[in-house]
Write a protein that binds this DNA or RNA. Sequence first.
DNA 1: TTTCAATATGACGGCTGATTCATGTCTTGG
DNA 2: CCAAGACATGAATCAGCCGTCATATTGAAA
Lengths: 218, 218
Amino acid sequence: MNHLSHFVHTLPDTAPKTARGQKTWVRILEAAEQEFGEKGFHDAAITGITQRAGVAMGTFYVHFKSKEEIFRTLIVHMGKLTRSWIGQRVAEAPSRLEAERMGLQAFIEFVRQHKNLYRIVNEAQFVAPEAYRDYYAAFSQAYQRRLDEAVGRGEIEPGNNEHRAWALIGASVFLGQHYGIWDDSVDLQDVTSNVGDLIVNGLSRKGDGKTDNKGDRE
Amino acid sequence: MNHLSHFVHTLPDTAPKTARGQKTWVRILEAAEQEFGEKGFHDAAITGITQRAGVAMGTFYVHFKSKEEIFRTLIVHMGKLTRSWIGQRVAEAPSRLEAERMGLQAFIEFVRQHKNLYRIVNEAQFVAPEAYRDYYAAFSQAYQRRLDEAVGRGEIEPGNNEHRAWALIGASVFLGQHYGIWDDSVDLQDVTSNVGDLIVNGLSRKGDGKTDNKGDRE
DNA sequence: TTTCAATATGACGGCTGATTCATGTCTTGG
DNA sequence: CCAAGACATGAATCAGCCGTCATATTGAAA
């Protein structure tokens, strides 16, 4: 909720000029996050947003051109917020492999604390496809860069890090959906240590040293 | 497109009684897939569906109770279709590990051939959440069962297969989104062999035999 | 051939909700 | 203090489209 006070740092070029205007701008955006998060884009009403914000209908259009515009603004902001949260947590990791586990954990925790945000981002796929792609493209690029660096340091096996990044992001998103939104009672440590192991070691049996996937017996 | 003739096998209890009625039922469903796929649920119009189907407005309501009902019908059908497609392809796999690669490949191919379906299923998250959860729950259960069996046969390392299943499904879905919908020019073999290797062997360097993720140097 | 349940029709009622606009009230620089 | 721009107001406008209904047609069983 009050993470949205971060909006203060995201004031666009079209930002309100006066302190009064800025305060209203932020309050409308906060209200929009709740409204969109609870009802979804289509069921959300401008009047719902303005009522939550305690302003009149018309005030909305003083600050935003349309329902879609405020939605896009929200997406951009949330991308920044999520990446900075995870980046901070992952920065403490001793190695890339450990970072995988910590990043996953940080992500699901974040989802649990920002269910509205999560829903809004997902819905962007249909409401604002450009914003949605940009959102994940930013994640993917950051992820790839980290993987590249880890390969450079010899921490992980070389491989196509773009493909890897999308696969790992997808895994995180679905785990976030399942264990963050649908069932937030599950112990996170449990999930992340299991999946962390999957990411680090894969499914294959330890000890038969097999790396190729060709020609099994039978 | 003509995969929808499979609808014939999905006739519900409320199905039309006569051959004429069934034919109409199927045509409306086919039309709905196109309309929803192209415009999304909210921008899709009943008149759009009936025009594509070549029937009058009212005919729609002879066969379906509402816009949402036909949408849910579509989701259920598509779940069956997808699982059967992948199941068939995966059945030919010599081992669970190879099945992972083949399953991923089959899935992305399927997505490329059914972009409408893909969009509709994703949108179900907001239009028909129950149907959406059921859709993925069915996948997850099937996936878990296969992993359990593979563990039983000693093909893969034991671990929490529920967590694994969600992670792997998420990876597939995102790879499908990226390499199936957004960029379908990429060579699939390339993607699936890379990601297949990630799933089977993980990120860790081969040869340092490390299995734990505790206490690295530095 | 007769009958009637199943199926088809499409104009219309009704509601919702985004956006506009004409009119006020602040706030600030000079 | 006083413009003049910035900001706020909310009733009115306007458009879209879901779902209903009274009526017509079909076709298969009797």
